[in-house]
Design a protein around this nucleic acid. Structure first.
Lengths: 197, 197
DNA sequence: ATTAAATTAGAACGACCGTTCAAATCATCA
DNA sequence: TGATGATTTGAACGGTCGTTCTAATTTAAT
Protein backbone atom coordinates (compact mmCIF):
# COMPACT_ATOMS: atom_id res chain seq x y z
CA UNK A 1 0.00 0.00 0.00
CA UNK A 2 1.06 3.63 -0.29
CA UNK A 3 0.21 4.43 3.26
CA UNK A 4 3.07 5.95 5.26
CA UNK A 5 4.48 3.95 8.11
CA UNK A 6 6.70 6.30 10.12
CA UNK A 7 6.35 9.95 9.33
CA UNK A 8 8.95 9.89 6.66
CA UNK A 9 7.37 12.81 4.88
CA UNK A 10 7.62 14.93 7.99
CA UNK A 11 11.30 14.05 8.22
CA UNK A 12 11.81 15.14 4.63
CA UNK A 13 10.10 18.46 5.27
CA UNK A 14 12.16 19.07 8.39
CA UNK A 15 15.36 18.33 6.53
CA UNK A 16 14.40 20.77 3.81
CA UNK A 17 13.53 23.50 6.28
CA UNK A 18 16.88 23.23 8.02
CA UNK A 19 18.71 22.95 4.71
CA UNK A 20 17.24 26.16 3.30
CA UNK A 21 18.15 27.99 6.47
CA UNK A 22 21.72 26.73 6.39
CA UNK A 23 22.25 27.36 2.68
CA UNK A 24 20.97 30.90 3.15
CA UNK A 25 23.19 31.59 6.13
CA UNK A 26 26.42 29.89 5.12
CA UNK A 27 26.31 29.51 1.37
CA UNK A 28 26.38 26.35 -0.68
CA UNK A 29 29.94 25.14 -0.35
CA UNK A 30 30.16 25.98 3.29
CA UNK A 31 27.04 24.03 4.17
CA UNK A 32 27.90 20.35 4.49
CA UNK A 33 25.51 17.44 4.45
CA UNK A 34 26.77 16.86 7.98
CA UNK A 35 25.58 20.33 8.94
CA UNK A 36 22.13 19.59 7.59
CA UNK A 37 22.17 16.28 9.42
CA UNK A 38 23.11 17.85 12.74
CA UNK A 39 20.65 20.71 12.42
CA UNK A 40 17.71 18.56 11.40
CA UNK A 41 18.49 15.74 13.83
CA UNK A 42 18.47 13.04 11.15
CA UNK A 43 21.49 11.02 10.18
CA UNK A 44 23.48 11.68 7.05
CA UNK A 45 22.38 8.34 5.71
CA UNK A 46 18.76 9.30 6.12
CA UNK A 47 19.26 12.45 4.10
CA UNK A 48 20.46 10.30 1.24
CA UNK A 49 17.37 8.16 1.68
CA UNK A 50 15.27 11.17 0.74
CA UNK A 51 17.55 13.00 -1.68
CA UNK A 52 19.87 11.84 -4.43
CA UNK A 53 22.69 14.20 -3.51
CA UNK A 54 23.52 17.62 -2.14
CA UNK A 55 23.10 19.35 -5.49
CA UNK A 56 19.58 18.03 -5.94
CA UNK A 57 18.61 19.22 -2.47
CA UNK A 58 19.71 22.71 -3.29
CA UNK A 59 18.07 22.92 -6.70
CA UNK A 60 14.82 21.66 -5.21
CA UNK A 61 14.92 24.29 -2.50
CA UNK A 62 15.78 27.06 -4.92
CA UNK A 63 12.91 26.10 -7.21
CA UNK A 64 10.48 25.87 -4.33
CA UNK A 65 11.65 29.21 -3.00
CA UNK A 66 11.22 30.95 -6.34
CA UNK A 67 7.81 29.37 -6.82
CA UNK A 68 6.70 30.60 -3.40
CA UNK A 69 7.93 34.06 -4.24
CA UNK A 70 5.97 34.11 -7.47
CA UNK A 71 2.80 32.71 -5.95
CA UNK A 72 2.90 35.29 -3.21
CA UNK A 73 3.34 37.98 -5.84
CA UNK A 74 0.40 36.79 -7.92
CA UNK A 75 -1.76 36.98 -4.82
CA UNK A 76 -0.61 40.47 -4.04
CA UNK A 77 -0.68 41.73 -7.60
CA UNK A 78 -4.46 41.83 -7.90
CA UNK A 79 -4.68 44.25 -4.99
CA UNK A 80 -3.06 46.91 -7.17
CA UNK A 81 -5.10 48.53 -9.93
CA UNK A 82 -2.57 50.50 -11.99
CA UNK A 83 0.73 49.33 -13.41
CA UNK A 84 2.41 52.14 -11.52
CA UNK A 85 1.13 50.79 -8.22
CA UNK A 86 2.20 47.32 -9.25
CA UNK A 87 5.75 48.54 -9.79
CA UNK A 88 6.00 50.02 -6.32
CA UNK A 89 4.38 46.87 -4.94
CA UNK A 90 6.84 44.69 -6.79
CA UNK A 91 9.77 46.66 -5.37
CA UNK A 92 8.53 45.94 -1.84
CA UNK A 93 7.85 42.33 -2.73
CA UNK A 94 11.40 41.93 -3.97
CA UNK A 95 12.82 43.69 -0.95
CA UNK A 96 10.98 41.53 1.56
CA UNK A 97 10.50 38.19 -0.15
CA UNK A 98 13.28 37.66 -2.64
CA UNK A 99 15.62 35.06 -1.15
CA UNK A 100 18.81 36.91 -1.95
CA UNK A 101 21.15 34.77 0.18
CA UNK A 102 19.79 31.58 -1.30
CA UNK A 103 20.32 32.79 -4.84
CA UNK A 104 23.83 33.81 -3.93
CA UNK A 105 24.41 30.20 -2.93
CA UNK A 106 23.07 29.26 -6.33
CA UNK A 107 25.81 31.28 -7.99
CA UNK A 108 28.32 29.32 -5.97
CA UNK A 109 26.94 26.05 -7.21
CA UNK A 110 26.66 27.30 -10.78
CA UNK A 111 30.23 28.57 -10.86
CA UNK A 112 31.62 25.22 -9.74
CA UNK A 113 32.83 23.22 -12.73
CA UNK A 114 32.07 20.00 -10.90
CA UNK A 115 28.38 20.78 -10.66
CA UNK A 116 26.23 18.81 -13.07
CA UNK A 117 25.18 20.81 -16.14
CA UNK A 118 21.52 19.96 -15.53
CA UNK A 119 21.57 21.51 -12.09
CA UNK A 120 23.26 24.63 -13.40
CA UNK A 121 20.71 24.91 -16.19
CA UNK A 122 17.84 24.50 -13.75
CA UNK A 123 19.22 27.29 -11.62
CA UNK A 124 19.64 29.61 -14.58
CA UNK A 125 16.06 28.89 -15.58
CA UNK A 126 14.90 30.32 -12.27
CA UNK A 127 15.83 33.80 -13.45
CA UNK A 128 13.00 33.56 -15.94
CA UNK A 129 10.41 33.80 -13.17
CA UNK A 130 11.07 37.33 -11.89
CA UNK A 131 11.91 38.55 -15.38
CA UNK A 132 8.52 37.35 -16.56
CA UNK A 133 6.80 39.10 -13.68
CA UNK A 134 8.54 42.38 -14.47
CA UNK A 135 7.72 42.12 -18.15
CA UNK A 136 4.06 41.41 -17.39
CA UNK A 137 3.75 44.65 -15.43
CA UNK A 138 5.45 46.70 -18.11
CA UNK A 139 3.35 45.13 -20.85
CA UNK A 140 0.15 45.85 -19.01
CA UNK A 141 1.21 49.44 -18.46
CA UNK A 142 1.86 49.91 -22.15
CA UNK A 143 -1.37 48.22 -23.16
CA UNK A 144 -3.39 50.46 -20.89
CA UNK A 145 -1.65 53.57 -22.14
CA UNK A 146 -0.18 54.15 -18.71
CA UNK A 147 3.38 53.84 -20.04
CA UNK A 148 4.67 55.05 -23.39
CA UNK A 149 5.57 52.56 -26.07
CA UNK A 150 9.20 51.60 -25.62
CA UNK A 151 11.68 48.77 -25.84
CA UNK A 152 10.05 46.41 -23.37
CA UNK A 153 12.89 43.87 -23.36
CA UNK A 154 15.42 46.54 -22.52
CA UNK A 155 13.18 47.95 -19.82
CA UNK A 156 12.70 44.52 -18.31
CA UNK A 157 16.43 43.90 -18.04
CA UNK A 158 17.12 47.38 -16.68
CA UNK A 159 14.45 47.06 -14.02
CA UNK A 160 15.56 43.54 -13.11
CA UNK A 161 19.21 44.42 -12.72
CA UNK A 162 18.39 47.46 -10.64
CA UNK A 163 16.13 45.61 -8.22
CA UNK A 164 18.61 42.73 -8.17
CA UNK A 165 21.46 45.07 -7.37
CA UNK A 166 19.48 46.77 -4.62
CA UNK A 167 18.71 43.35 -3.15
CA UNK A 168 22.39 42.81 -2.46
CA UNK A 169 22.12 45.56 0.14
CA UNK A 170 20.00 43.26 2.29
CA UNK A 171 23.23 41.45 3.12
CA UNK A 172 24.39 44.40 5.16
CA UNK A 173 21.29 46.47 5.95
CA UNK A 174 17.86 45.92 7.41
CA UNK A 175 15.07 45.74 4.82
CA UNK A 176 13.09 48.43 6.62
CA UNK A 177 15.85 50.99 6.10
CA UNK A 178 16.00 50.13 2.40
CA UNK A 179 12.37 50.92 1.61
CA UNK A 180 12.97 54.56 0.58
CA UNK A 181 15.79 53.47 -1.70
CA UNK A 182 13.67 50.89 -3.50
CA UNK A 183 10.83 53.36 -3.89
CA UNK A 184 13.12 56.04 -5.21
CA UNK A 185 14.49 53.64 -7.82
CA UNK A 186 10.95 52.93 -9.02
CA UNK A 187 10.17 56.65 -9.11
CA UNK A 188 13.19 57.35 -11.27
CA UNK A 189 12.42 54.43 -13.52
CA UNK A 190 8.79 55.50 -13.91
CA UNK A 191 9.92 58.80 -15.35
CA UNK A 192 11.30 56.85 -18.29
CA UNK A 193 8.19 54.68 -18.55
CA UNK A 194 5.87 57.67 -18.59
CA UNK A 195 7.85 59.35 -21.33
CA UNK A 196 10.05 61.77 -19.46
CA UNK A 197 11.80 62.65 -22.75
CA UNK B 1 72.25 43.76 1.59
CA UNK B 2 68.73 44.02 0.25
CA UNK B 3 69.72 42.90 -3.21
CA UNK B 4 67.67 39.98 -4.54
CA UNK B 5 69.47 36.71 -5.02
CA UNK B 6 67.33 34.49 -7.31
CA UNK B 7 64.49 36.16 -9.07
CA UNK B 8 62.14 35.50 -6.26
CA UNK B 9 60.17 38.61 -7.03
CA UNK B 10 59.47 37.41 -10.53
CA UNK B 11 58.17 34.15 -9.09
CA UNK B 12 55.86 36.04 -6.79
CA UNK B 13 54.48 38.10 -9.66
CA UNK B 14 53.92 34.99 -11.78
CA UNK B 15 52.11 33.29 -8.94
CA UNK B 16 49.86 36.31 -8.50
CA UNK B 17 49.09 36.50 -12.20
CA UNK B 18 48.02 32.90 -12.36
CA UNK B 19 46.12 33.18 -9.08
CA UNK B 20 44.01 36.12 -10.25
CA UNK B 21 43.14 34.28 -13.43
CA UNK B 22 42.12 31.14 -11.55
CA UNK B 23 40.10 32.98 -8.88
CA UNK B 24 38.27 34.86 -11.63
CA UNK B 25 37.48 31.74 -13.61
CA UNK B 26 36.69 29.24 -10.89
CA UNK B 27 35.79 31.25 -7.83
CA UNK B 28 37.49 31.28 -4.46
CA UNK B 29 36.56 27.95 -2.91
CA UNK B 30 37.00 26.06 -6.14
CA UNK B 31 40.51 27.36 -6.68
CA UNK B 32 42.95 25.34 -4.61
CA UNK B 33 46.48 26.26 -3.69
CA UNK B 34 47.41 23.17 -5.68
CA UNK B 35 45.74 24.69 -8.74
CA UNK B 36 47.76 27.86 -8.36
CA UNK B 37 50.89 25.76 -7.91
CA UNK B 38 50.27 23.74 -11.06
CA UNK B 39 49.32 26.75 -13.17
CA UNK B 40 52.25 28.88 -12.07
CA UNK B 41 54.78 26.06 -12.14
CA UNK B 42 55.94 26.66 -8.57
CA UNK B 43 55.54 24.20 -5.73
CA UNK B 44 52.89 24.56 -3.08
CA UNK B 45 55.63 25.07 -0.54
CA UNK B 46 57.00 27.97 -2.53
CA UNK B 47 53.64 29.67 -2.58
CA UNK B 48 53.66 29.60 1.20
CA UNK B 49 57.14 31.08 1.13
CA UNK B 50 55.69 34.18 -0.52
CA UNK B 51 52.23 34.33 1.03
CA UNK B 52 50.93 33.66 4.50
CA UNK B 53 47.87 31.76 3.36
CA UNK B 54 45.26 31.47 0.64
CA UNK B 55 43.08 34.18 2.13
CA UNK B 56 45.89 36.72 2.11
CA UNK B 57 46.66 35.96 -1.51
CA UNK B 58 43.11 36.69 -2.49
CA UNK B 59 42.74 39.88 -0.48
CA UNK B 60 45.99 41.18 -1.94
CA UNK B 61 44.80 40.47 -5.47
CA UNK B 62 41.39 42.02 -4.87
CA UNK B 63 42.95 45.18 -3.48
CA UNK B 64 45.40 45.43 -6.33
CA UNK B 65 42.64 44.87 -8.84
CA UNK B 66 40.45 47.57 -7.36
CA UNK B 67 43.37 49.95 -7.19
CA UNK B 68 44.15 49.38 -10.87
CA UNK B 69 40.53 50.00 -11.73
CA UNK B 70 40.52 53.28 -9.87
CA UNK B 71 43.84 54.47 -11.28
CA UNK B 72 42.66 53.74 -14.80
CA UNK B 73 39.51 55.70 -14.08
CA UNK B 74 41.37 58.71 -12.75
CA UNK B 75 43.40 58.77 -15.95
CA UNK B 76 40.31 58.59 -18.09
CA UNK B 77 38.24 61.00 -16.02
CA UNK B 78 40.15 64.11 -17.04
CA UNK B 79 39.32 63.50 -20.68
CA UNK B 80 35.68 64.29 -19.92
CA UNK B 81 34.67 67.87 -19.30
CA UNK B 82 31.09 67.68 -17.98
CA UNK B 83 29.72 65.51 -15.19
CA UNK B 84 27.23 64.11 -17.66
CA UNK B 85 30.03 62.88 -19.90
CA UNK B 86 31.80 61.48 -16.87
CA UNK B 87 28.73 59.42 -16.00
CA UNK B 88 28.56 57.83 -19.42
CA UNK B 89 32.31 57.30 -19.29
CA UNK B 90 32.06 55.69 -15.89
CA UNK B 91 29.40 53.30 -17.14
CA UNK B 92 31.75 52.10 -19.87
CA UNK B 93 34.64 51.94 -17.45
CA UNK B 94 32.61 49.73 -15.14
CA UNK B 95 31.44 47.55 -18.00
CA UNK B 96 34.91 46.93 -19.36
CA UNK B 97 37.21 47.15 -16.37
CA UNK B 98 35.31 46.16 -13.26
CA UNK B 99 36.54 42.71 -12.27
CA UNK B 100 33.11 41.24 -11.66
CA UNK B 101 34.19 37.59 -11.41
CA UNK B 102 36.90 38.41 -8.94
CA UNK B 103 34.52 40.32 -6.70
CA UNK B 104 32.10 37.43 -6.88
CA UNK B 105 34.88 35.27 -5.47
CA UNK B 106 35.23 37.86 -2.74
CA UNK B 107 31.63 37.30 -1.73
CA UNK B 108 32.41 33.61 -1.41
CA UNK B 109 35.27 34.32 0.94
CA UNK B 110 33.30 36.88 2.90
CA UNK B 111 30.33 34.57 3.38
CA UNK B 112 32.51 31.81 4.80
CA UNK B 113 32.39 31.89 8.61
CA UNK B 114 35.88 30.41 8.76
CA UNK B 115 37.38 33.39 6.99
CA UNK B 116 39.28 35.71 9.25
CA UNK B 117 37.33 38.85 10.19
CA UNK B 118 40.19 41.08 9.05
CA UNK B 119 40.11 39.65 5.54
CA UNK B 120 36.36 40.07 5.36
CA UNK B 121 36.64 43.65 6.57
CA UNK B 122 39.34 44.40 4.02
CA UNK B 123 37.12 43.08 1.25
CA UNK B 124 34.14 45.12 2.39
CA UNK B 125 36.36 48.19 2.45
CA UNK B 126 36.99 47.75 -1.25
CA UNK B 127 33.41 48.80 -1.95
CA UNK B 128 34.35 52.27 -0.78
CA UNK B 129 36.49 52.84 -3.86
CA UNK B 130 33.82 52.78 -6.59
CA UNK B 131 31.30 54.43 -4.27
CA UNK B 132 33.71 57.30 -3.77
CA UNK B 133 34.22 57.65 -7.50
CA UNK B 134 30.48 57.80 -8.13
CA UNK B 135 29.97 60.33 -5.39
CA UNK B 136 32.77 62.52 -6.75
CA UNK B 137 31.06 62.75 -10.13
CA UNK B 138 27.69 63.57 -8.61
CA UNK B 139 29.18 66.16 -6.29
CA UNK B 140 30.96 67.88 -9.13
CA UNK B 141 27.77 67.91 -11.17
CA UNK B 142 25.90 69.57 -8.35
CA UNK B 143 28.65 72.05 -7.65
CA UNK B 144 28.76 73.13 -11.29
CA UNK B 145 24.99 73.48 -11.45
CA UNK B 146 24.83 70.67 -13.98
CA UNK B 147 22.69 68.55 -11.66
CA UNK B 148 19.99 69.74 -9.31
CA UNK B 149 20.56 69.68 -5.58
CA UNK B 150 19.46 66.32 -4.25
CA UNK B 151 20.21 63.59 -1.76
CA UNK B 152 23.72 62.76 -2.91
CA UNK B 153 24.13 59.73 -0.65
CA UNK B 154 20.94 58.18 -1.94
CA UNK B 155 21.93 58.92 -5.52
CA UNK B 156 25.33 57.35 -4.98
CA UNK B 157 23.85 54.13 -3.69
CA UNK B 158 21.21 53.98 -6.41
CA UNK B 159 23.77 54.50 -9.14
CA UNK B 160 26.17 52.00 -7.58
CA UNK B 161 23.62 49.25 -7.22
CA UNK B 162 22.38 49.73 -10.76
CA UNK B 163 25.81 49.57 -12.33
CA UNK B 164 26.68 46.68 -10.03
CA UNK B 165 23.57 44.80 -11.02
CA UNK B 166 24.23 45.41 -14.70
CA UNK B 167 27.75 44.09 -14.23
CA UNK B 168 26.37 40.69 -13.32
CA UNK B 169 25.22 40.38 -16.91
CA UNK B 170 28.85 40.10 -18.00
CA UNK B 171 28.75 36.57 -16.64
CA UNK B 172 26.47 35.52 -19.47
CA UNK B 173 26.82 38.16 -22.18
CA UNK B 174 29.59 39.84 -24.11
CA UNK B 175 30.43 43.36 -22.88
CA UNK B 176 30.00 44.80 -26.37
CA UNK B 177 26.34 43.78 -26.48
CA UNK B 178 25.76 45.38 -23.09
CA UNK B 179 26.89 48.88 -24.06
CA UNK B 180 23.41 50.16 -25.04
CA UNK B 181 22.00 48.86 -21.78
CA UNK B 182 24.57 50.64 -19.64
CA UNK B 183 24.10 53.85 -21.60
CA UNK B 184 20.34 53.66 -21.29
CA UNK B 185 20.63 53.24 -17.53
CA UNK B 186 22.72 56.41 -17.34
CA UNK B 187 20.26 58.27 -19.54
CA UNK B 188 17.37 57.33 -17.28
CA UNK B 189 19.34 58.20 -14.18
CA UNK B 190 20.38 61.55 -15.61
CA UNK B 191 16.74 62.55 -15.92
CA UNK B 192 16.57 62.45 -12.13
CA UNK B 193 19.87 64.29 -11.74
CA UNK B 194 18.79 67.07 -14.06
CA UNK B 195 15.51 67.57 -12.25
CA UNK B 196 13.11 65.60 -14.36
CA UNK B 197 10.11 66.37 -12.20
C1' DA C 1 86.28 27.09 -1.01
C1' DT C 2 83.51 27.63 2.85
C1' DT C 3 79.76 29.55 5.03
C1' DA C 4 75.42 31.47 5.64
C1' DA C 5 71.28 33.01 4.06
C1' DA C 6 67.75 32.99 0.59
C1' DT C 7 65.00 30.24 -2.27
C1' DT C 8 62.53 26.09 -3.96
C1' DA C 9 60.61 21.50 -3.88
C1' DG C 10 57.90 17.84 -2.38
C1' DA C 11 56.35 14.76 0.94
C1' DA C 12 53.33 14.40 4.80
C1' DC C 13 49.64 15.63 8.12
C1' DG C 14 45.23 16.38 9.79
C1' DA C 15 40.84 17.79 8.88
C1' DC C 16 36.67 17.77 6.35
C1' DC C 17 33.27 16.27 3.02
C1' DG C 18 30.08 13.79 -0.15
C1' DT C 19 28.66 9.40 -0.67
C1' DT C 20 27.88 4.37 0.09
C1' DC C 21 26.57 0.39 2.56
C1' DA C 22 25.27 -3.06 5.71
C1' DA C 23 22.78 -3.57 9.63
C1' DA C 24 19.16 -2.24 12.87
C1' DT C 25 14.52 -0.63 13.86
C1' DC C 26 9.76 -0.07 13.15
C1' DA C 27 4.91 -0.57 11.26
C1' DT C 28 1.80 -3.22 8.91
C1' DC C 29 -0.37 -7.38 7.33
C1' DA C 30 -0.90 -12.41 6.83
C1' DT D 1 3.54 -14.31 15.80
C1' DG D 2 6.31 -13.98 12.00
C1' DA D 3 7.26 -12.06 7.68
C1' DT D 4 7.92 -8.13 4.77
C1' DG D 5 9.02 -3.83 3.29
C1' DA D 6 9.71 0.97 4.70
C1' DT D 7 12.56 3.75 7.44
C1' DT D 8 16.72 5.11 9.99
C1' DT D 9 21.29 4.81 11.68
C1' DG D 10 26.22 5.22 11.94
C1' DA D 11 30.43 3.58 10.54
C1' DA D 12 33.50 3.62 6.75
C1' DC D 13 35.66 4.94 2.27
C1' DG D 14 38.02 7.67 -0.96
C1' DG D 15 39.14 11.97 -2.13
C1' DT D 16 40.52 16.88 -1.64
C1' DC D 17 42.47 20.67 0.51
C1' DG D 18 45.14 24.14 3.35
C1' DT D 19 49.08 24.08 5.77
C1' DT D 20 53.55 22.61 7.78
C1' DC D 21 58.05 20.71 7.76
C1' DT D 22 62.35 19.07 6.28
C1' DA D 23 65.66 18.81 3.14
C1' DA D 24 67.80 20.21 -1.08
C1' DT D 25 69.52 23.79 -4.06
C1' DT D 26 71.17 28.28 -5.32
C1' DT D 27 73.34 32.71 -4.56
C1' DA D 28 76.31 35.98 -2.47
C1' DA D 29 79.83 37.14 0.76
C1' DT D 30 84.03 35.94 3.17
Amino acid sequence: MNKRRYDSEKAKVEIMEHAISLFSQKGYNQTSVGDISTASGYSKGHIYYHFENKEKIFVLLAQKSMQDWHNKWLLKECTYSTATEKLYGMAMHVLYHYQTPLLKSGQELASNPKSSPESVQQLYNLAIVPTGAYRAILQKGIDKGEFVNGNINEWTVLLGTWLGGLCQLTNTQEPKTLEPLFNQAVTIFLRELKGGI
